[in-house]
Design a protein around this nucleic acid. Structure first.
Lengths: 186, 186
DNA sequence: CGAGTGACGGACCGATCGGTCCGATCCTAG
DNA sequence: CTAGGATCGGACCGATCGGTCCGTCACTCG
């Protein structure tokens, strides 16, 4: 017939827009800026996403998948038991040290849109729940109590929260050291 | 002359608008909603504040002052040394348990406006710095190392981060218990 | 080659944003 | 009582938001 549809357009748009949403916040990035960055017309954008909400949800899903993969990679390279718990926190700490790290995209979104029960919010909350469940499972396998999982989770939350501050890199090391101490009490 | 200006109008506006900003986020609250909630005309509002930024800064300053007072009250009722550190965290945990608690207003603002170096952002960053300095000082007086202050700060950050989640109340207790353990190692 | 589809760029829409201004009203000082 | 400032409610402004639509070009396949 005619010109065939470019494959992977949707993924390309999402990966182009993800750093914008992440670095500036979802509300601060307008659709005009998005199409300019993606180098496409609004037509194409709205043919792949019904609206901004769905694009944001796709962005959060992409980040969620990347983070899951990164965590699983770190866990595969680490040992079993308590070492796995430390490895998970260390992997987060590594990302906190990277320049441009600005905290967890899911938490940031929920801070921007606290009360909304919209599509991106559900993605974000689902990710947080599964992330928390992963910590629980790792600690349980390591022989730790649910209380220990609570403590580790608290450190992880703090680790994400200090992101972007001047002392984030230092706090990243502190978090890893603290978790090491916590799991050492097993 | 004429009708005398109502005293405390500025403070009334700020205290009226504070819960709106806090619960919905700064960007989500428009000036129309503000004047409706404050029960005043836009004239009065803009005669007290040059613009929304200054109103937001006043909101953050109000919250900052309230939090400082609350922390000092808790510290005055607590003992010296390591007990003071625990008391500070316990005071935060008390607020986390309150319904409607949605995290630290300063951190939330900085998440909403990450790159901006505007008036409210300076208020928020200044508060965070002074809050961190308070923790450092308390730990130092208690005889703790700077590393301990780092750990306590991390727990406080985590405590704020879990606010608003379903398990916030439980995590609040966990945070207090964890800090108790940390300072017990002195 | 020519027809037809994919994609681009941008004009355009209604709604809403922060902010300004104006007339009407109320209250108090003289 | 009267005059004048404080305050209110809302019309109004330009800018920008998310979203729609159209004209044009590019490419590909019959």
């Amino acid at each position: 017939m005619a010109r065939t549809a470019t494959p992977g357009t949707r993924a390309r748009i999402v990966s182009t827009v993800a750093p914008l949403f992440y670095s500036q916040g979802v509300r601060a990035v307008g659709m005009a800026q998005i199409v300019a960055a993606a180098g496409c017309g609004k037509n194409l954008l709205y043919s792949h996403f019904p609206g901004k909400n769905e694009l944001v949800a796709a962005y959060l899903s992409l980040v969620s998948a990347e983070r899951d993969r990164s965590a699983e990679r770190a866990l595969a390279a680490a040992g079993e038991g308590r070492e796995a718990v430390v490895a998970l926190v260390a992997e987060i700490a590594d990302r906190v040290r990277e320049p441009g790290f600005r905290g967890c995209a899911m938490r940031n979104y929920l801070t921007e849109f606290p009360a909304e029960d919209d599509v991106p919010g559900r993605v974000a909350r689902e990710y947080l729940a599964s992330s928390r469940a992963r910590v629980d499972e790792l600690v349980r396998v390591a022989g730790g109590s649910p209380g220990l999982a609570d403590r580790v989770w608290l450190v992880i939350e703090g680790l994400y929260a200090v992101a972007g501050r001047p002392d984030a890199a230092q706090q990243a090391e502190v978090a890893v050291a603290l978790v090491k101490e916590l799991v050492a009490t097993l």
